[in-house]
Structure formats: C-alpha cells, structure tokens
Simulated assay, not measured.
Amino acid sequence: MKKILLMSLFVLMMTVVAACSSDKEDDKASSGTEQKTITFGVTPWTSTVPPTKIASLILQDMGYEVKETAADAGSVYMGLSRGDLDVFMDAWVPMHQTYLDKFEGKIESTAVSYPEADTGWTVPTYMEDVNSLEDLKGREGEFDNEFYGIEAGAGATIESDEIIEAYEFDFKQVSSSEGGMLAQAQRLMEQEKPVVFYGWRPHTMFNKFDLKVLTNEKGFFETSSVEVITNSELKDNAPEAYEFLSNWNISLDEVEEMIVKIEEGQEPEEVAQEWIDNNQDKVNEMIGK
C-alpha cells in the first residue's frame, strides 16, 4: 500500500513539474519575443494612409499579421504607451513633442519618413496683404472671428490655441475633421472671401488651391520632421519588424502623389502596392536584403 501511495505521489509531482514547465514555455511564447501581429494607429489624416498601407503590405510579405486601429492623435499615443498599438507612421515633430515627452520610455522615434514638411495657419494667395500671423492682428472680424482647425486633441489644434493666446487674437478655433475643415475653407475660397485654416504638406489642398502658409515671429509651427513612432517593446517583441521600420524612409512628394491618386478614386492598397512594385530596391534596403 505504501509503495502504491509513494508511486502516486511521485506521478503527481511529475505532473505538477511538467505543468509548470509547460506554463513557462507558454509565458515565453506570450512574452512578445515571437510577436506576429503588428497593430498600426491610424489618425484621420490623408497623410497617414499611404505610409501605413505600404508598411502594412511589406510586413504582411514578411509573415506578420497586420491590424489597423483608427483614433485621434492623442489616443494613438496613449495606445502606443500602453502597448495596445505598435506603430504610428505619421508623427509630426516638434508638433507632437509633447506626446513624446509625456510617454518617454514607453514610446520612441524609430525613423524619419521625410525631414521637412511645411505646416501652419494657411490662407489663399488672393489674400495678398496677409503673409504672416502678425498681419492678422486687428483683422479678425474679416474672418468672422473664426479659425478652422482639425480634430480636438491633435497637436496642431493645441498649438493653434497657443497661437490665439500668444497673439491675443479675437479668434475662436472651430475644430472639425480634416474633411469638414477643408469643405468650409473651400466654400469660402470659391467666393474669394477671407479664410484662415490649418494647412500642411503633404496634402492635396496645395495641388487643388493656391495657398500659402503664414510665417510668424514667435516660432510656432516650425518645419516638421515626419517620423515613425513605435512602442518601446516592439524592438524586443518583433525585431525583424522593428528593423524594417527603423530603415523606413519615403519622400514628401511621393506621399503627396499617392494621396492624389487615392482621392481620385484608386484603392489605398492598390496605390501602396504600386509604390512597392516601383521601388523594390528601396524596399529591399528597408527590410535588409
């Protein structure tokens, strides 16, 4: 009877050890070192779409599953910091520097897409006597005291509020989606009325309309570097994906050309694949071939 009891205890102990060993293996597999799903944060800006689609297709060719999560800029950075998102392809620095500082250690700038993107308060060129922010002072009534911006929470929206405060402008910022902002601006431009709104390149607005970005003497909206941001765990969890993203680069003109094609009716994936097919040497460099 003792022998049977001892044998039973031995079998039970071996079962527990085996279970613990299996649990450790499962923990290792789930620790992120073999991560095979890459999740992109996608803001509602046309400039975000082409680089996201290109990177997505390349990562799929590399064997990864890809997901996209639509959100405003603030939510994208929060998701990156929590590890819910892995990549954001359209960070504007220094405009988004507040997010990089806030989540320092949890997110990182991994690559520069293109180093010089113009951005800022924008007017149509028929407003010949308005060339700087300073030129707007005292003339807010001509614009019905409204500045048109993008969605609340975006870095541009925050900085535009800072401009209104710094210059003591009698402007109210009207926040909307990119499409809503441009629809309102277009309506006024078609009548050649005064209008001031947030503009940036790459964007088809500069192809469709004669526009100029206003200068300023206070250092607002410096020329931006557009960068790829990843959560800090991606380097260890998906090293091949991280290596590809760290080698990422694309020109502003190429992104703008793709935005035009998408707005003219081509599917974003089709446009992205066309770029990949025409730039295979660059793709091979980015993935380390």
Rank of each mutant, 00 (worst) to 15 (best):
E25C: 04
K172H: 15
N278M: 11
F143L: 01
E270P: 00
G265I: 00
A29V: 13
P51L: 05
I229L: 06
E256W: 04
E240P: 06
F143S: 01
E270Y: 08
V271M: 00
T48R: 02
Y167S: 04
S225R: 09
P51C: 08
E267H: 10
Q191W: 06
D101H: 11
Q186R: 09
D135V: 00
T39V: 10
I58H: 02
I163T: 06
M13H: 09
I158Q: 11
S251D: 14
N131L: 00
A111Y: 11
S31W: 04
K67T: 12
P268R: 03
M95N: 15
K218G: 09
A156L: 11
Q273E: 14
G149N: 10
A18L: 11
E108H: 05
F103S: 06
T37F: 10
A91H: 03
E217L: 03
V228I: 15
G138V: 01
S246Y: 08
F221T: 06
L6R: 14
L100Y: 08
I4W: 08
D236H: 09
Q184S: 12
P94R: 02
E108Q: 12
P239G: 11
Y242P: 00
I58K: 01
L85W: 01
I38E: 04
N216G: 07
I54M: 00
Y167R: 07
I158D: 11
N284K: 14
M14G: 10
H203W: 14
F40Y: 14
S47Y: 12
E104R: 06
T110P: 00
E256D: 12
D253Y: 14
G141S: 14
F244D: 08
Q191K: 15
F209A: 09
Q97M: 10
V174N: 09
Q280I: 08
K24I: 13
L214H: 03
K212R: 08
N231C: 04
E128N: 09
I259P: 07
S177N: 07
E270R: 05
L6I: 13
E142Q: 04
T215I: 05
A71H: 08
G41P: 00
M78D: 10
F147W: 15
S224H: 10
L57V: 02
A238H: 07
T125C: 07
E68T: 07
V123D: 03
E134T: 01
S31F: 03
T52Q: 13
T48S: 14
Y126H: 07
V42W: 07
G155P: 03
S8K: 09
W92Y: 13
M78G: 13
I158P: 06
A152C: 09
D86W: 00
I250F: 05
E162H: 09
E104H: 11
A18C: 13
D236N: 14
M95W: 12
F221I: 03
D144G: 05
I158N: 11
A70L: 13
G141A: 15
N278I: 03
L188M: 10
N278F: 04
E178N: 12
E264F: 11
T46E: 14
H203I: 04
L182H: 07
M258G: 05
L211R: 05
I229M: 06
S81P: 03
M286I: 03
M89W: 04
E285H: 07
T43G: 07
I250H: 05
K193D: 08
A154Y: 15
A19F: 15
I250W: 04
Y126P: 02
V260K: 14
G219S: 07
Y148R: 10
F147S: 06
D61E: 15
S176P: 02
E257R: 04
T43K: 04
D26K: 15
P268T: 01
L234M: 12
S21Q: 13
